[in-house]
């Protein structure tokens, strides 16, 4: 699967009610580091298809979600399990670092 574009309208159903863990990336088109991890998120969505959902929140278009999760820096990644989230990871430096943090 490819990453799902998340909005304040679909966040509840796609993320909070998901049976699978959901990796949520807060990003913006002007953010260089966000672009660098974008190919990694595509790979994760494909590699862990059926085990993990990958979603992306464009903070320019979804300021409510940015505010709700207190995102001050991008890229920030959250992992949701059963509607709950733990410590986010900020600007991960490698695919391996994301996998280790998410327990993949």
């Amino acid at each position: 699967m490819t990453p799902i574009e998340l909005t304040k309208e679909n966040f509840e159903s796609v993320v909070l009610q998901s049976e699978l863990p959901v990796l949520v990336d807060f990003w913006a088109p002007w953010c260089g580091y966000c672009r660098r991890i974008a190919p990694v998120l595509d790979q994760l969505a494909k590699q862990y298809d059926g085990k993990l959902v990958v979603g992306k929140v464009n903070i320019d278009e979804q300021p409510e979600l940015e505010e709700r999760f207190g995102v001050e820096i991008i890229p920030t990644l959250f992992l949701f399990r059963n509607g709950e989230t733990g410590e986010p990871i900020v600007n991960p430096g490698s695919k391996a670092q994301i996998e280790a943090w998410a327990g993949l």
């Binding site: 660098r36 991890i37 974008a38 190919p39 990694v40 430096g93 490698s94 695919k95 391996a96």
Partner: peptide, 8 residues
């Protein structure tokens, strides 16, 4: 090529 994140 071993790359930890993405190209460039």
């Amino acid at each position: 090529v071993l790359e930890k994140l993405s190209a460039g």
